[in-house]
């Protein structure tokens, strides 16, 4: 197996998943819609006072992003499991972690990236300042790939479980707590005009750590559960 061929598998799968997402948009549009609705419920529940909203904005946006990511993650391997494509992936001689990386990257493009693109709208809805929004953007950029990777571990573990969506959240949400803590702290710090380099470095370190280790866990989980059924 030469490098070029493996590269072909990576881009081929990436393109396949993006193509599928374009042809069946509901699987990623719905979580996105959920994200926007969930955030806009808070002003209705708490009150439109801009200062209060500004105070809770980082937490609200990040928690909603977390929940939306969990909703979207469920479809990552399930469709492949149900139509047998996962068996083809598992019986492929190509390195599993590379295949998994392609799938997670594709999934981030359709679930993580739209959240980032929508962030200015949400910042306006929640009366965030420009500094706050900028920090939010940076934390989302560093944080959503971590959510995708951790979520993929969960999605791989529950792939054979019917209606495993809730279980997925139960497994993965506790693991996402550090991301939530550092990201919201960064946005809060930025709104009072302080430097957020520390929080961003911590998030970047988390990202590097997750990118390195989670493909191994995802492949292991798929091998453990994906062949059944």
């Amino acid at each position: 197996m030469d490098r070029e061929q493996s590269h072909g598998v990576f881009t081929g799968l990436l393109r396949r998943d993006l193509k599928l997402a374009v042809r069946a948009p509901s699987q990623w549009l719905n979580p996105l819609l959920f994200f926007v609705i969930a955030v806009s419920l808070f002003p209705l529940g708490i009150g439109p006072e801009p200062n209060t909203l500004r105070e809770i904005a980082p937490g609200v946006i990040w928690v909603a992003a977390l929940l939306a990511a969990m909703l979207a993650q469920d479809s990552l391997f399930r469709a492949d499991f149900e139509d047998g494509s996962l068996e083809q992936i598992l019986t492929s001689p190509h390195p599993m972690s590379m295949i998994v990386a392609a799938k997670v990257l594709a999934h981030w493009f359709i679930t993580g990236l739209p959240v980032i693109i929508l962030s200015p709208v949400l910042a306006v809805l929640m009366s965030l300042s420009f500094e706050g929004w900028w920090a939010l953007l940076l934390t989302l950029l560093l944080g959503t790939p971590i959510l995708s990777l951790l979520g993929a571990v969960g999605a791989a573990l529950v792939v054979s479980v019917k209606r495993g969506g809730v279980l997925l959240s139960l497994l993965v949400l506790p693991l996402c707590i550090p991301v939530l803590i550092f990201a919201t702290a960064a946005v809060k710090t930025a709104t009072v005009g302080l430097s957020i380099e520390g929080q961003l470095s911590l998030l970047a370190a988390l990202l590097a750590f997750t990118v390195t280790l989670s493909p191994i866990a995802i492949s292991g989980a798929l091998r453990a559960t994906g062949g059944g059924g």
């Binding site: 571990v153 989670s214 866990a217 989980a221």
Partner: peptide, 9 residues
Amino acid sequence: RAASILLLV
């Protein structure tokens, strides 16, 4: 097998 991977993670 699934649960052991979860434990390690």
